[in-house]
Amino acid sequence: MKSLLCTAFGPLEHLAISEIRSPRPGPGQVLIDVKAASLNFPDALMAQGLYQVKPPLPFSPGTEIAGVIVEVGVDVRGFRAGDRVIAITGWGGFAEECAVDAGRVTPLPGGMDFETGAAFLFTYETALHALQDRGRLEAGETLLVLGAAGGVGLAALEIGKVMGARVFAAASSEDKLALCRKLGADEIINYVSGNLRDRVKELTGGKGVDVVFDPVGGPYTESALRATAWGGRLLVIGFAAGDIPKVPINLALLKERSIVGVYWGESVKHDPEGHLRNVKQLMEWFAAGKVKPFVSERVPLSEAAAAMKRLIHRQVMGKVVIFPEA
């Protein structure tokens, strides 16, 4: 089968399409014919050896797929060959077939196609876990989303609106902000051409926002923290800007602010029941037309590495979906 293979951690240019043997499902696993896979920021970090998880080499990146089960391993219950499913793989998704633990697999809902399924769970579960479980966002509160035009940023924007928040979308260009406005942002902020803290204060009458959703890091985290209200919560999602910020801790003291870590992938192990509740909630919102991933690019496997480079240079809006069999 064809696979985008990483044989050594390093520059994304080293990734190459290779013919490798199809995997076999082990005990508790299913083998999935990958119809679509989506690109997430950890995929690019993992291939460079910059992520907290380092798979054994060689491996295929790709954390999120949708497809059809072609074989089930021993001790698998609830799935059979022919089932249409979504899976969070950890890695291995940028290939024509992928073996996945059955516990990481979810039935593809009726009315959801493979493209949407592949682009759905990773970002929306991250955003829902962050806003609901960690940020305790309540209806009527204000939410500032950094990197709001990215995949996880748009998910946070949509979920924030569904939860009843007033959502401020912050991004680095006018075209990104136009997309955020189109998808429901109440206010938009260009944090490259303007002062983030000052603009938030202006929009909130000096109060500040209640919750910050921060997948960006770098120089924007401190400004966003300073822009929070009394009791504000800053949710640490990731560091797309490339730098892990060093924030003066007295900023937490001055307004009883909280800096809250969000590690959705690990949280699933600690609270599997909460994970299932969140999946159920997201599927209900999708069926009701309240949330849907925005797919900006559709590419074959041969263009996946180039798309990863665009992602790390923050040139992607929404989600990129990869079609391994194209």
Rank of each mutant, 00 (worst) to 15 (best):
L31Q: 09
S18V: 02
G90K: 08
A252W: 09
G49C: 07
L203F: 09
F114H: 04
G28K: 04
R77C: 09
Y124A: 06
G92N: 07
A288N: 04
L196N: 06
A178G: 09
V105F: 05
N195W: 04
D133E: 10
K207M: 13
M112Y: 08
G82N: 07
I17Q: 07
G265I: 00
R199E: 15
R181L: 11
A252H: 00
M317A: 10
Y220D: 12
L253F: 14
I237Y: 07
P272T: 02
E96C: 04
K161D: 10
V291I: 15
G289R: 06
A155N: 02
G150R: 04
R181G: 12
L15C: 10
V209Y: 07
M112H: 09
D210F: 08
G218A: 15
V262E: 05
M283G: 13
L108R: 01
G217N: 08
G147C: 12
L183G: 01
A119F: 03
Y51R: 00
K309N: 05
M112F: 08
E303N: 06
V212I: 03
E174K: 02
I20N: 02
G93S: 06
V152W: 12
L143V: 02
R24N: 10
G117H: 06
K54W: 05
W264G: 08
G28M: 05
T204K: 08
L225K: 03
P27K: 01
R226P: 02
R136Q: 15
K161T: 11
C180I: 06
V320R: 01
I249D: 05
A227P: 11
V320N: 00
L45K: 01
S38C: 11
T89Y: 10
